[in-house]
């Protein structure tokens, strides 16, 4: 596939990807790429296959057809835990912390199982700990007792305990108050500045695109457009681009 904007080097790539639940495919031949050091945001209407795509990349759903490559290495056969250790961290949309475990235990698990046997004295290195100052004061709190925003921050921190090459986020701002929402996007930007390439699925398209390099529009399980984020943001009819069907049903 030829890109309108050719990114520096591709770190993660999907080619002709098919996946789904039961009999039918939800994503039908998706080609998508994440450039090294980039933030790519996938937008699209409900049911367009955004979450299915990201789950397939994470290894929670098998790819029925097509290829997934990380730095040119085929990932298809790797289980989800092995993909994590290969350097792809994934933060699911909901239920993204172990609610019955404490904040510290959540971080310990991430440190112990996500990395290939790396050991550290502290669960978070200074740079990551600096991103999430409020977690330090909640170490003994059960994760289920945190607020939605705090849980999102914990999920984020867990995914970053071992510096991943790629961070995949499924609707990081879903259900958050406006304050936390801008906080989340600010964190995404800072994590990216640490050298982590980011692929995210987002409903709050404008806020997400403001920090993104590239936008992928997904509809009906297929890629409809790939464009620089600034270009998509400049479009007057941004809503029609991805809300087309949804808006029609509103009236």
């Amino acid at each position: 596939m030829s890109h309108p904007l050719s990114p520096p080097a591709e770190i993660l790539r999907a080619t002709g990807l098919h996946a789904g639940y039961g009999a039918g495919d939800i994503i039908k031949g998706v080609d998508a790429a994440l450039g090294q050091g980039r933030i790519v945001t996938i937008i699209g209407p409900n049911g367009s296959g955004k979450s299915t795509l990201i789950k397939t990349l994470a290894g929670l759903l098998p790819a029925r057809q097509g290829e997934i490559e990380l730095e040119g290495q085929r990932l298809n056969e790797l289980s989800a835990p092995k993909r994590v250790r290969a350097g792809i961290a994934y933060v699911p949309q909901e239920y993204n912390v172990f609610r019955n475990l404490t904040v510290l235990e959540n971080l310990q698990i991430a440190r112990e199982f996500m990395g290939a046997g790396r050991s550290h004295h502290r669960v978070l290195d200074d740079e990551v700990a600096g991103l999430f100052p409020e977690l330090g004061t909640h170490h003994k709190t059960q994760a289920g007792n945190l607020s939605g925003g705090q849980r999102q921050m914990l999920a984020f921190a867990c995914a970053l305990t071992v510096r991943p090459k790629v961070l995949m986020l499924d609707e990081p701002s879903a259900g958050l108050s406006p304050k936390y929402m801008s906080d989340v996007f600010d964190k995404v930007k800072r994590v990216n500045a640490m050298g982590v390439s980011i692929l995210m699925v987002e409903q709050n398209a404008r806020e997400a695109l403001r920090i993104s390099h590239t936008c992928i529009v997904l509809a009906g399980g297929r890629v409809r457009a790939v464009a620089p984020a600034s270009e998509v943001l400049g479009m007057k009819d941004l809503n029609s681009l991805y809300l087309g069907d949804a808006q029609a049903t509103l009236h």
Partner: peptide, 16 residues
């Protein structure tokens, strides 16, 4: 305890 709490999250936290 993590698997008991949330098996699919456990997978993406690297737990076999």
């Amino acid at each position: 305890r993590a698997v008991a709490d949330n098996p699919s999250l456990a997978l993406v936290r690297g737990i076999e």
